[in-house]
Write a protein that binds this DNA or RNA. Sequence first.
DNA 1: CCATAAAGGTCTGATCGTCCGTCCTCTGGC
DNA 2: GCCAGAGGACGGACGATCAGACCTTTATGG
Lengths: 243, 243
Amino acid sequence: MSPQSAPQAPLSLETVFAPVRSQTAFEETVDRLGTAIKLGLLPAGERLPAERELCQKLGIARSTLRQALTALGQSGYLHAVRGRGGGTFVVDEPPRGADRSELSPTDWREICDERLAVEVGVAVLAVSRATEAQLRVLDELVVGLDDCIEDYPAYRQADVRFHVGLAELTGSSRLVVAMTQCQGRMSDLIHHIAHPPEVLAHSNAQHARLLAAIRANDVGAAVSTMTEHLQGTEHILAGLLPG
Amino acid sequence: MSPQSAPQAPLSLETVFAPVRSQTAFEETVDRLGTAIKLGLLPAGERLPAERELCQKLGIARSTLRQALTALGQSGYLHAVRGRGGGTFVVDEPPRGADRSELSPTDWREICDERLAVEVGVAVLAVSRATEAQLRVLDELVVGLDDCIEDYPAYRQADVRFHVGLAELTGSSRLVVAMTQCQGRMSDLIHHIAHPPEVLAHSNAQHARLLAAIRANDVGAAVSTMTEHLQGTEHILAGLLPG
DNA sequence: CCATAAAGGTCTGATCGTCCGTCCTCTGGC
DNA sequence: GCCAGAGGACGGACGATCAGACCTTTATGG
């Protein structure tokens, strides 16, 4: 009856009948490697495993892998070196260019919601599982972050490493994957907005408080610190994006 | 050097080069519908949309959809009725039979970790977003759950509806999907273990306390109640499964 | 009683992604 | 100068998927 023919079914049924979107192996590979590069998980200059080895790890044919590598090469993320001792390398200066955009209001909110779930879940698990050694590594990352509050791209890369590092200390690879994907989506979202040093400094202070809460085995503090931390970016997005 | 040739790379790199596992449209459809039926999201006797309509919603060809429907029919979950007024229906008594098993120790722990993330994240968001009307629906579900603590299959179905209902009131379809998948995996895990009425009663009391915490806008209580709730099943699994 | 509509059931041809294997080309080191 | 290790290129086979036309069943209404 409504002019917009609003979906009446409950969310759960909507999702059951939502489009089945199966990525091809090619697409998924481009996505996986591309995200890893953009996030800095594969640092500039890094050499990928040899094609014949990598295609086995990825469980795909070499020709399919090459399609993906070629695509990433054309986009300027990889360059191949032939001959013995060659290989495929992450380019030294990955393109900063605009990558994607066009997010609907519901999209970006859902992305933030999913991130909140993953980050809070990781924080809860980290409290009971983190070892002192692991925490010290993250301590250093926080120190490093303080040094680049004037250089956003560098800050963002270290920020990603910090959050992925949190996920790593849960020991759950599924959560690491989830965290990586969330960070990739967040990067797409926040790529174009301003990041004044004061904001980054404040954000990094929350990193430090988070680590303290984890050390103190204080689940409540960890959750609330993380929640605040995430709401920071969310408020900025709410002011800038549609919705 | 170790005899097991342990993976030395950090988790995040392992996951970047982990196998690309792209399900086919057929597989994903069987999975989607099969899970929805097993979880009770598509209740017994429910009629699915007509094939010509459903394949559009799912974004796949009708022939592919039919493969999936045929497979689910042969597994005893669906039956088709020809002629006008016919359709494809969820069977009245879906097979209880053993479905899957063979989970490695790392697998089931990671499944529980992911569930914890989703459930805790949902709980946090629910605190700020739940409306009284939505909460009352969940209240009734809790009452209904109390009535079937003697009948585990019925309890489990209502339990799933409760948890998916929590996800629904965040308004985020991504979280609904994540919750659904987690519940599906959990069902596979806990299908075969004992569920004495006392345990179910205790579990349902936690549901009630969770709703109270959400009503009171008490994030801390919601998180801790949810955490306890999940640890209940996790401890049982730890006693029964390898690892 | 027959026509029609609405549903599932069947078939076929084309396309596309992927795999596998083979061979070529380049390049540094022994 | 040979060889090993790397990327690069090609072609055939196969399977999944798609699009569409057509058939069969069945309830309903004129």
